[in-house]
């Protein structure tokens, strides 16, 4: 493989990870505030279908993307209302929405199936696009890919460098303490769940109007991605940069599946397509292993230097969820 081809492939990787990044950052914001939005899988399908239909009907890409964000926000609002106000299990409501939205997208998407719609054009940045290596890699992408990079940095800045970000983390970690300090826990949880949903909702149009343009119903190849989004959120340890790393890793694995296909003729293509999914679970295992009691016990039997090195690796991989994730909070 020559250098040029490699750069083109890497640039493609950045673009194909963009929808995952929007979804994972959206979910990270929601979970940081204490609300788990399990509806991702169906929501992404519905927002992909909905935004494609809207863009097709209006001829406007902007309208399509807005529709995607609106669908994400609306689904998140249902999760928020059920979980925060009605105090139902967020997992139960999210799971039902994941199935409901998937079936809705297949049913309502029937008429637009297979049609050719508008597609997000690349937006090379003047001057920078002409740079060697960095030009084709970074500066000849489309708008949403640029935004995906900005989103990661922006989310990190907001979460860890601003006061509202501190409060956001507070309501997901210790809602009682945040409430005692004057934070309106319920209202803020609504806000960040819906905001996270809107950001994640953009993943749909990035697929249907750019990365995998069009709507092909149940063979769109999008079913299952939402579940991966949820595991990357955990893998990312609820930190934007680590989450983005997870997205690129997954995109890389999927790309490798395509590249390796011709080298392994005995293996059906479907096997390599799903291979990244179990690999993500393996990484989840690594992320959680450091917390298991038996691991600690067996580590204690190792000689000093080896134990220290191993436990440092495990601690670096370790990810702890927001303490109040998934639990309702009552203000009184």
């Amino acid at each position: 493989m020559t250098g040029d081809v490699l750069i083109v492939n890497l640039a493609g990787l950045l673009a194909s990870a963009a929808p995952l990044i929007f979804a994972v950052i959206g979910e990270t914001i929601s979970e940081r505030a204490g609300v788990i939005n399990l509806s991702m899988n169906g929501m992404i399908l519905l927002s992909a279908m909905g935004s494609f239909s809207v863009a097709l009907a209006t001829g406007s890409l902007a309208a399509g993307f807005l529709a995607g964000a609106a669908i994400g926000a609306l689904v998140a609002l249902v999760v928020a209302a059920a979980g925060i106000s009605l105090r139902q299990s967020q997992v139960a409501v999210g799971f039902v929405l994941a199935l409901l939205c998937r079936d809705l997208s297949y049913f309502l998407g029937n008429p637009v199936m297979g049609q050719v719609g508008p597609r997000l054009p690349p937006a090379p940045i003047p001057l920078l696009a002409g740079l060697p290596v960095a030009g084709p890699l970074l500066f000849r992408q489309d708008l949403m890919t640029y935004l995906s990079l900005l989103l990661v940095a922006g989310a990190w800045l907001f979460l860890f460098k601003t006061r509202p970000g501190l409060v956001l983390r507070g309501i997901g970690e210790k809602p009682e303490a945040a409430y005692a300090r004057g934070a309106r826990v319920k209202a803020l949880r609504y806000l960040y769940t819906v905001l996270g949903g809107a950001i994640a909702g953009l993943a749909g149009p990035i697929y249907s109007l750019s990365v995998k343009a069009g709507w092909k119903g149940s063979i769109s190849g999008l079913d299952g991605l939402g579940w991966i989004v949820l595991s990357i959120t955990i893998f990312g340890g609820w930190k934007p940069f680590r989450a983005a790393f997870g997205c690129y890793l997954f995109a890389l694995l999927q790309w490798l599946g395509l590249v390796l296909q011709p080298l392994l003729p005995g293996l059906p293509s479907q096997v390599l397509q799903v291979a990244p999914f179990p690999l993500m679970i393996l990484t989840l295992l690594l992320v959680n292993l450091g917390k298991a009691e038996w691991v600690e016990r067996s580590l204690a039997t190792l000689p000093g230097p080896a134990r220290r090195r191993l436990s440092r690796v495990l601690r670096a991989l370790n990810a702890t969820p927001p303490a109040a994730l998934g639990t309702p909070f009552e203000e009184d």
Partner: peptide, 28 residues
Amino acid sequence: TFGGVNEIFGGLGLNFVSTALNIWLIFG
């Protein structure tokens, strides 16, 4: 219980593995 992987995500991952295994058997 031993790996600390929430059953939702462990289960989902294994669903994908089972699909891959099934298809591999049928096509292999």
